[in-house]
Amino acid sequence: MKEKFIELKEEFVLNFIDGGRWKWLVDGLGNTLIITLFATLIGALIGVIIATVRSTYDKNFETLQKNGGIGYYVMKVLNGICKVYLAVIRGTPVVIQLLIIYFIVFAKSNNDLFIAIFAFGVNSGAYVAEIFRGGIMSIDNGQFEAGRSLGFNYVQTMIYIVIPQTIKTVLPTLCNEFIVLLKETSVAGYVGIMDLTKAGDLIRGRTFSAFMPLIAVALIYLTIVLILTKLVSILERRLRRSER
């Protein structure tokens, strides 16, 4: 028993203390969080824009068609672009997207972290867009009509009436998307970015001992995800309470 304990302790020292290797994990975790946070922001921005374009097109199709002219074609083209974007992003693996953006789109850039943020943001945007569109479409059409009948134009109706209600309904789902993204960024190592997963793997390669670094990485992910999940459920309960 005691021997086993000493063995574990040596393993621990070897993997994390020697050469200050624990710092790799800290740096990796930092990068993971930075990528996730900014990618979520980009994703939310893209998502809201796409969802607005798509639902505007769906909801105002009749008016657009009647008025015809340039507005109709602009919306038709925008809607088409959004559809292609959604199909491509949701139809291909995130690793492939990351590789393409890293080696083809930004082949000349050296700012790896930015590229990763961009790639994961563009990826996440597609999923957020559909979450948000679902939220907009779930708002009772009477809310649109009430807004429009008071004299608000479509955009004002969205901003003052529909989107505030949408945010409330989709916020928990959006937070879950953030949690999913946190785990998805673990493939950033494919393009040589030192995220949490890559850091653990580097330690394994250096010490030739897999158990400690990989389990440590898993535990860190798990802890963060559990904390975030808890926060989301608290948020959910708050939102539900304010409905009363």
Binding site: A146, F152, P164, Q165
Partner: peptide, 19 residues
């Protein structure tokens, strides 16, 4: 939108803004 400002409307299901 300008004309609608001068035409009030009341709906069967009220459509008040819940937020």
């Amino acid at each position: 939108n300008l004309h609608r400002q001068k035409m009030g409307m009341v709906f069967q299901h009220f459509n008040l803004f819940p937020h």
